[in-house]
Design a binder for these strands. Structure first.
Lengths: 331, 331
DNA sequence: ATGAAAGCGCTAACAC
DNA sequence: GTGTTAGCGCTTTCAT
């Protein structure tokens, strides 16, 4: 109906020039108080809001950051998005959030969208099957920093921030040893994911070096349902594990469902430890012991890193969010 | 480093005019195949992407929609955001996502941000304490549709889409009657929220009319911890409930933690039913019976409604996402 | 203390 | 088929 107010309209109504209005609205010291008041009053009356498109076009930089994630789910990305959104907004930026559906093609289109919107920088958590990361690197040529989060390329030559996979796994493994577990089932996620590979390797290595006598079983589960089924199956064995290590929240939920069905008492019948974002473990009684891989912390760190990049630090960094052991009653 | 490619640069390199380049890139029939090829080749080489800011400025409408939610959490908003993002992106729009932190002031700032970015429309889920909705209504004067989602104003004169609170509550109540429960504990959330009030009223009304002899206890819990504590406390009573109705996922998680601690067997020791988004109920064994209030469906419906609004239908509507009973084994 | 003018990248009406 | 031109809303340099 009524088009948005502009500097031009205000200036015409007031019989002064556009530049004076612009300066008045910015509290420029040159402008007289009388003029400022007139301008402010009218702009309030008209609900004037500056047109970000015009500003971006004119100044050639925008206050929008892009975020591309595989999927917006309650397992990890909700907390990452929540913290990143908060951080960016508090510092005058906005977040353009896109999900790839774990599809490299969609991911590429999302990247294009970011470019078209002339975002100041991009955060990316890669889809499982992305192999070609050169399109992401190209953005850096245009002075648009790209920071990879969590699901990162193996390529060393890029900015990445991950949870401390090795540290988190090792902490959990130490807790298992400390709890004197002798027969441990390790459940891992999709083996295509870099985090799965890193966690599995760290798991094996820790026990090989520090506790070679502990019996290990390893199984993969690409979703909660498979984790549930693996647990049920393994419980039919004669020799049952005395502890289960869950690589992720998805795995943990599957395992816990089986635990409830089998009416196992934690930690007496079975010990459980997980690597987790912290939400799922507290849904159960006793609460699950876990090493934290906080999406919240990762978001905060990612924003800080983005700020340095925007300030011109093109130094490639590979940061880790530190891991913390949170003791529930499940081990 | 290297500034982004523009029509001007391409036209200069090729020695043709800007408009020809523009038309070639749009596959305008007037342009010769030869010219088109030259233009396409160069624009690919330069990674040309049109500047959305310039287009928005020129055409005076953007392909960005705003979304303001209290918080991005795994309880409900993750699925809402996921579906809304997907829907908008699939139709050529992008989503600018802002969270208010349940603070009316931040909410207002977020609204300003939407205006500044000249979004085509706004979805809002109000913070608990928002009383003044006139700023939202003003957007409509500028032909920017505002659609309220889930947490909506009581005001009748606006576009809103909610879950079917009454239907969801009634369905759950019917299931409780059908299961022959005689002594039901109803646990409800923050009584300031419109959805709490509606669900509680529907709950009372159903039993008053249809099953006045069933004994009802009602309690409030503003978070999972309180729901946990209420359950623990009530289980110390001589006369224990034979079923618990949980108004939301937050309530359900608290109750289930207590259920596990008390080692109650579902559904024999106690029946449980909830109103839920569907994620939490399947974490438990047996799975929890619930009436679904799907953020996913709500998002889809909201987008459809936005399309009609953008197409000019300014007809005020009050839509409901229908409720479905999903049977787990908890009742 | 204020104004005029150029230009950011693009579209679209109008020429030829 | 292709070019010219005006202008979207704003910032910013240079005048006055």
């Amino acid at each position: 109906m009524k088009p948005a107010a502009t500097l031009k309209k205000i200036s015409e109504s007031l019989g002064i020039s556009i530049s004076t209005v612009s300066r008045a609205l910015k509290n420029h010291p040159d402008i007289s108080e009388a003029t400022k008041k007139k301008v402010w009053d009218l702009s309030n009356l008209l609900d004037y809001e500056p047109n970000a498109n015009a500003i971006n076009l004119r100044t050639n930089h925008s206050k929008v950051l892009g975020l591309i994630v595989p999927v917006i789910s309650g397992y990890f990305y909700d907390s990452l998005i929540a913290s990143l959104e908060e951080e960016t907004r508090l510092h005058g930026y906005s977040l353009l959030i896109l999900q790839s559906g774990d599809d490299p093609m969609v991911e590429l289109n999302n990247l294009k969208l970011c470019k078209q919107n002339r975002v100041a920088g991009v955060f990316v958590s890669l889809s499982t099957n992305t192999v070609e990361i050169s399109p992401f690197k190209k953005l850096s040529d245009n002075d648009i920093p790209v920071i990879f989060l969590d699901k990162v390329p193996t390529d060393v030559d890029c900015n990445k921030i991950c949870v401390a996979d090795v540290a988190a796994t090792t902490l959990a493994a130490e807790a298992l040893v400390e709890a004197k577990k002798k027969n441990i089932l390790g459940l891992f996620g999709n083996s295509k994911m870099s985090i799965t590979q890193e966690r599995k390797a760290a798991f094996h290595q820790f026990f090989a070096i520090n506790a070679p006598k502990i019996k290990l079983q390893i199984a993969d589960a690409i979703n909660p349902m498979e984790a549930y089924q693996r647990t049920i199956d393994i419980w039919k064995q004669a020799k049952k594990p005395d502890a289960i290590f869950c690589m992720s929240d998805e795995i943990l939920t599957g395992v816990m469902k089986a635990v409830q069905q089998l009416k196992l008492q934690l930690p007496t019948d079975l010990g459980i430890i997980a690597i987790s974002n912290g939400f799922i473990p507290q849904l159960y009684y006793p609460e699950i012991t876990y090493t934290e891989t906080s999406g919240y912390k990762l978001g905060k760190l990612a924003y800080t890193r983005m700020v340095s990049c925007l300030a011109g630090s093109s130094f490639i960094q590979n940061l880790k969010v530190d891991a913390v052991l949170v003791r529930g009653g499940s081990l």
